[in-house]
Nucleic acid binder design. Structure first.
Lengths: 197, 197
DNA sequence: TGAATAATGTTCTAATTGGTACAAAATAAC
DNA sequence: GTTATTTTGTACCAATTAGAACATTATTCA
């Protein structure tokens, strides 16, 4: 945080990563060129390299930033005391995220999944991200089960799986231009199934 | 079908499209180069151009072939007389499709969705493909409703939406390396919800 | 047989790609 | 002020890209 020695930066690295993230989000990894990134960030290529390393490194930073930004509201939503409220808030947070900017969907799904088979670091991150989310849902359902909101003999994994699937599906469908109401019909159905309608 | 005038083709156009489809499926549109395509098809680039036009045209042919190949078993599955059997067969057909070749997922989701925002023809096709599938599901549910398998006052769209979402989600999760059993937990949950467990 | 036709493989090209070398510019320490 | 240090912008590079020119080869029709 102290004054650096050389010429000072004219840009904020966090904002730069966010700008890069937006470009990747819109066009995908392969279709995003360094020139596009440099322009979006407002830098020239050598500065990008000096600050973040190569294209892949910059993408991974954008990915990590996305996970941090996206999962926070989702996890927070799950803290609501009643299960139905928690799940409803969870899906609302998801829709806020996926419907933003005209429905750009999920950064992970749109940009990471297509390149996972060619970049091990990405595949690793996807697995981890999904496991984290699934586990958060499972923990929340377990709490609800202990509180008697879910029958004691109910196996929780199918419910987790249904919720995860719904979350994935609304991300894809948001990207395809569907309306929020249409997505809400799906999420409500999923919540009803878990909580009883 | 009659004998052509000039030098005869040494390849089968349909097989060529299928080979190209496989490459697109694995790497995505942008990351697939014409050289890769030519090698996979067993042709040189000029022959590809002569036969199919440019990269985009070849991709669209691959897409159309996919829709034809993929939707046939799905629609057929829905013809089973009992709703539960029909939906179970529907999801099994989906899993056969998405789990093939080590879990390559859905061609439309993997290759088309990421480029939809940059190619109108693709966006158009996606919409159409999804509408067709959703409609097939709706028609099948309507039949079941008329037969008394679904309560008469039940709105069908939330159910269609749930089934479509499940179908999308298993495609994504298959691509991410999940096991068939894991997906089956999700599809069974969805079927139970529609048919009653 | 020979012209017409349509496919083939080799070779090329203009543009774009991810990535760099290097000098100019801006700051802090001395 | 000078020097060390870091960032910036210009210019460049080798490789790859989508696509095309063109001569060659294999076939049918006359």
């Amino acid at each position: 945080m102290k004054a650096q020695r050389g010429r000072p930066r004219t840009f904020n690295p966090d904002e730069a990563v966010n700008s890069a993230q937006a470009v990747f989000w819109q066009h995908g990894y392969d279709a995003t060129s360094l020139n596009q990134l440099a322009e979006a960030v407002g830098l020239h290529k050598p500065s990008l390299y000096a600050a973040f390393g190569d294209k892949k490194a910059l993408y991974l930073k954008a990915y990590d930033a996305y996970v941090a930004q996206a999962t926070a509201p989702l996890k927070k939503a799950l803290t609501a005391p009643k299960l139905r409220d928690a799940l409803t808030a969870f899906f609302n947070a998801g829709m806020d995220l996926f419907m933003a900017d005209g429905g750009r969907g999920c950064f992970m799904l749109t940009t990471a999944v297509p390149i996972a088979s060619m970049m091990d670091e990405v595949a690793e991150r996807i697995k981890e991200t999904r496991a984290t989310l699934a586990n958060a849902l499972r923990v929340r359902l377990k709490t609800a089960q202990d509180a008697g909101e879910i029958k004691a003999e109910q196996d929780l994994w199918p419910l987790v799986s249904l919720l995860s699937s719904t979350h994935i599906a609304i991300a894809v469908r948001a990207r395809s231009g569907e309306s929020r109401e249409s997505l809400q019909a799906t999420t409500k159905a999923a919540v009803d199934m878990v909580c009883g309608s």
